[in-house]
Design a protein around this nucleic acid. Structure first.
Length: 306
DNA sequence: CTCCAGGGATGAT
DNA sequence: ATCATCCATGGA
């Protein structure tokens, strides 16, 4: 009933939404409810990707462009076979690639992505989901899709004028002042996320890192998930474990700087995709990364490190 | 370079 | 019911 259908080969909706890149989609019926920008969406997948739009006001005027918005958001145009083919050919990467078949790096709205990742620091995925949903419930606009309520992500202006206390009630802790300060920089016009799209990777990273609460890790997440910089390689504790244990198993003193240089060169032009596959594979399979687990131990498969 | 604040879910005892 | 563990940034 009323589905818009997409042929979506090489796309796995569940894995994509559960891979730690986006935090607001919630299970409903046979799929998920969430928002894409201002639109409330229900999405499920069997043979094809099926999407239903909801919400008030009803999307009558833009009906024809809505499918484009969905296809763009889920990055159905990414040449996944080519991307996977560009990964380095080593045992660790091959395992991750097989495991993550159909996982896509989606295109998130810039502010929503930045704000969510500012809130993600020192938090685990379960926490981030709660913070994201609390912010939306508190400050966003309510939409309905089928019988479910979802909330849009609040604009920077809304966050900027929220009180510390209100923000604190969303369980942000010390992140509240960073989020608010960043929102104020954006509303004042001192920083312009859209204009930064034109910047090369390095400059974009510097602009992002200058925002309160944004360091290298979060900057790289935002570059990868909102700016389509598919080389961006966020290094969190999971990825750091993978790199140290799988790629530098024999060496002792490897600095963060060295890991960063290695990740920028070794994983190639779609390093961000490689990172996401390694991250999701590690999170789903390794309890802490200390387990040798099945199939071959950690063999250091280094080629061309520098 | 090192040290440490920060806090709530999660899993182990 | 306690207890340990997980986590990124920024400032001392």
């Amino acid at each position: 009933m009323n589905f818009t259908e997409f042929a979506a080969p090489d796309f796995d909706l569940v894995m994509t939404l559960n891979s730690g890149q986006v935090f607001h989609w919630q299970r409903a019926r046979a799929g998920f409810v969430g928002t894409i920008g201002q639109y409330a969406i229900y999405a499920e997948q069997d043979d094809v990707l099926k999407v239903r739009f909801g919400g008030t006001p009803k999307p009558t005027r833009g009906t024809r462009v809505l499918p484009r918005i969905v296809a763009h958001y889920f990055a159905l145009d990414h040449p996944l076979a080519d991307i996977c083919h560009s990964f380095p050919d080593d045992a660790v990467m091959n395992d991750a690639r097989d495991f993550c078949r159909g996982l896509r790096i989606i295109r998130q709205p810039k502010w929503e992505c930045l704000a969510t990742f500012i809130c993600s620091s020192m938090k685990q995925v379960a926490h981030i989901r709660q913070i994201s949903l609390a912010l939306r419930r508190c400050f966003g606009e309510q939409r309905t899709i089928d019988d479910r309520m979802v909330y849009t992500f609040p604009a920077p202006q809304r966050i900027a004028r929220a009180s510390e206390k209100q923000l604190g009630q969303c369980k942000l802790g010390y992140r509240a002042k960073n989020l608010r300060a960043t929102a104020q920089l954006l509303t004042s016009g001192d920083s312009d996320l859209e204009a930064w799209s034109a910047l090369p990777d390095t400059e974009l990273g510097q602009k992002l890192c200058a925002l309160p609460g944004v360091g290298p890790k979060i900057a790289n997440c935002v570059m990868l998930f909102a700016y389509e910089r598919l080389r961006a390689f966020p290094i969190d504790v999971w990825i750091e474990r993978v790199l140290r244990q799988q790629y530098f198993a024999r060496r002792k003193k490897i600095t963060t700087r060295q890991l960063r240089e290695f990740s920028q060169t070794y994983f190639g032009e779609h390093g961000g995709y490689a990172q996401q596959y390694l991250f999701h594979h590690a999170r789903m399979n390794g309890r802490n990364g200390s387990a040798p687990s099945r199939s071959s131990g950690a063999r250091s498969s280094l080629r061309k490190t520098g």
